[in-house]
Design a protein around this nucleic acid. Structure first.
Length: 273
DNA sequence: AACGCTGCCTGTGGGC
DNA sequence: TGCCCACAGGCAGCGT
C-alpha cells in the first residue's frame, strides 16, 4: 500500500508526535505480526525504552529507541495510528504501545502482510544492508550514470523495473504508472531500450511525482492513514492511475489498463512511447 | 543473474 | 438482497 511518500509521512509523523516518549506497555493481539523476538517477549523488551527517531529506507521504517529498534514494513494495508484512548484503536490492530504521556501507538494491518521486526539498536545497519535495497530517488546516487548501468541489458519492462526494490527503493504500483506517464515512456519498454535522454526524463519525473505526493500529504485511497489520523490528497492528482477508459488529461484519448506481472498498469498509449 | 509465479490475508465493489 | 468473482498501494520464497 504505502509507497515512498506515504512511508516518509509516517516517519515524519512519528518524529513529530512521539519524540522522546517512553514505551510503558506493549500489547500484542496477533503474534504473527511480530518477528525477530518471541511476541510474548515484546512487552519486556520494549517497556522503558525511549524513542529517538524514525528513519525511512525504501518502504521500510526504522523506529529507533535506545537499546532497541523496530523494523516496520506496512506492505499493502499497514497503518500506524497515534491515539488518545486505547478503546479507539483501529480494527486489525496487532500491536499497541502505551506511552509515558498516556497516549497510544497502534500498529494495524487489515491483510496481515506487514511485519514489525524487533532488532537491537546496534544491528540496524547490518540488517538494512541485508535488504539489498536500491537507490533512494532523492539521493545523489540516483543519477544518469547509475541508472544507465542498472537498465543496461535488462529485458524486463520498465514498469516492473521501477517496482524492483533492489534497483530503486520506494516506488510502488501507483507511482510507477504516474512516473511513466509524466516521463512519456511506455510501461512496455524493455529497460535496456531506454535511451540516455529518456533516462534523464525518468530521473526528473520520478522525483517530481514523489515530491508532488509528499507535498500533497500522500495518497489516501482506503487504507492509508497518517499517524495522527489525517489522510492525504494525492489521489486527486493522479493522471492515469485508476482512470481506466477515462480521457487522458493531455490528449483526451482513453487511458488504458493492462496487467503486468499480475498487477495493473495505467497508461496512455498515445502520449507514452 | 534475471525473471515470473505463488502464497500470504481481508475487504470491497461490480455484475448477475 | 445475496452471491461470486476480480481486484487491492508489497514482497519473500521458490523454480526455471
Amino acid at each position: 500500500m504505502p509507497e515512498l511518500p506515504e512511508v516518509q509521512l509516517v516517519v515524519d509523523g512519528l518524529n513529530r508526535l512521539i519524540k522522546d516518549r517512553v514505551i510503558t506497555h506493549a500489547e500484542v493481539f496477533w503474534p504473527g505480526y511480530v518477528t525477530g523476538v518471541k511476541s510474548s517477549d515484546l512487552e519486556k523488551i520494549v517497556a522503558g525504552v525511549r524513542f529517538d527517531k524514525a528513519i525511512r529506507r525504501g518502504k521500510f521504517i526504522v523506529i529507533l529507541f535506545d537499546q532497541v529498534a523496530l523494523l516496520l514494513h506496512l506492505r499493502m494495508t499497514g497503518k500506524v495510528v497515534y491515539l488518545d484512548e486505547a478503546d479507539k484503536k483501529p480494527p486489525h490492530t496487532h500491536v499497541l504501545f502505551t506511552l509515558d504521556n498516556g497516549k497510544y501507538l497502534a500498529f494495524a494491518d487489515t491483510r496481515k502482510f506487514g511485519r514489525l521486526e524487533v532488532i537491537s539498536a546496534d544491528a540496524v545497519e547490518e540488517r538494512l544492508s541485508k535488504l539489498n535495497l536500491g537507490y533512494e530517488p532523492f539521493s545523489a546516487q540516483f543519477n544518469q550514470e547509475n541508472i544507465s548501468r542498472s537498465l543496461k541489458k535488462r529485458t524486463k519492462n520498465i514498469k516492473n523495473i521501477l517496482l524492483d526494490q533492489t534497483i530503486i527503493a520506494g516506488i510502488g504500483n501507483i507511482y510507477a504508472s504516474e512516473i511513466l506517464f509524466e516521463a512519456g515512456l511506455s510501461p512496455l519498454r524493455p529497460g535496456g531500450s531506454i535511451k540516455p535522454q529518456e533516462i534523464d526524463r525518468l530521473l526528473v519525473c520520478t522525483r517530481k511525482v514523489l515530491k508532488l505526493a509528499l507535498d500533497n500529504g500522500g495518497s489516501s485511497i482506503s487504507d492509508y492513514i497518517h499517524p495522527d489520523g489525517i489522510g492525504g490528497e494525492m489521489q486527486d492528482h493522479f493522471k492515469v492511475y485508476g482512470r481506466d477508459k477515462e480521457p487522458c488529461l493531455t490528449c483526451a484519448n482513453p487511458v488504458k489498463r493492462i496487467a503486468q506481472t499480475g498487477r495493473s498498469t495505467f497508461w496512455c498509449s498515445h502520449c507514452q512511447g
